[in-house]
């Protein structure tokens, strides 16, 4: 009860902060302190959002499709990498530094190359998303596997469990918390990755839409699309939270 009350009050604080920011923004624009073509007012942004809604949805569909395919491939690939690196120490030693290295390459820098190699269709975009999303999963899940309790594994061994059974009953369920934490990050990366790759070449998608309205200096539409992208990321992250709750019912139980 108390907890619920606390979460409501903390939400009230957040909402209040957002409202205050919006009011300041609206005032600044309305008083003409910053010219309208440089910073549209919140009301203008909402208007643009409503006006452009059908077009935004059409482009969002493309971006979401890319993000989903990329995310699915990236997460599966990341998961398989983690399993293999956990199972075979040699692979861990050989590939772990490489995996870390891939993350030091800025995705924006790779994107033009991918466009050069794979064209303007979907493939380069999906490859970029895979590069961006597999890493958190590999590192998170591998960490989960490796932090499995030694005593528990020994106990199962004493019961005659095979390595596969130990993996299935101890390591795999034990790493689910980390898996979902990584997935939450990867989901956000996948949307951002899709948009970035669309900037650099493509025929439709929110990134393409963004470049188009930027060139037209329609900053109200620009803000509308930014708002939409963060809304999509937020919703997807909530979806991951929901999935986690469904998949890990024991986390929800209280001590009695």
């Amino acid at each position: 009860m108390r907890k619920k009350f606390q979460s409501i009050t903390s939400k009230i604080n957040t909402i209040a902060a957002i409202l205050i920011l919006l009011i300041i923004w609206q005032t600044v624009s309305a008083l003409g302190i910053v010219p309208g073509y440089m910073l549209p007012s919140p009301v203008q942004v909402v208007k643009a959002f409503i006006q452009e809604f059908p077009l935004l949805m059409e482009n969002a569909k493309v971006t979401l499709l890319e993000a989903f395919i990329g995310l699915a491939c990236g997460v599966s690939f990341g998961f398989v990498m983690a399993v293999l690196m956990d199972r075979f120490e040699v692979l861990y030693k050989a590939f772990y530094p490489l995996v870390v290295l891939t993350q030091t390459i800025p995705t924006v820098a790779v994107a033009p190359l991918l466009v050069l190699w794979f064209g303007y269709e979907m493939l380069p975009k999906i490859i970029l998303i895979v590069i961006a999303t597999f890493f958190p999963v590999t590192v998170g899940v591998l960490d989960g596997f490796r932090s499995a309790d030694k005593d528990t594994m020994n106990l199962l061994r004493s019961m005659g469990a095979s390595e596969f059974q130990i993996f299935r009953y101890v390591k795999l369920p034990g790493s689910m918390g980390q898996f979902f934490a990584s997935l939450r990050i990867s989901v956000a990366y996948s949307v951002v990755g899709a948009v970035i790759s669309e900037w650099l070449g493509g025929f439709s998608g929110l990134g393409v839409y963004m470049t188009r309205v930027k060139k037209a200096f329609s900053f109200d539409k620009m803000f509308a699309v930014i708002f939409l992208i963060s809304l999509i990321s937020l919703l997807l992250m909530k979806l991951v939270d929901f999935l986690q709750k469904k998949c890990m019912p024991w986390e929800d139980t209280k001590n009695e």
Binding site: D151, L155, R157, S158, G174, W250
Partner: peptide
Amino acid sequence: KPGKISYMLQKDLLLPYR
């Protein structure tokens, strides 16, 4: 030969997700 006698420790080692 494991798999014949099991043991129990100070820690219960119950799997939290089962």
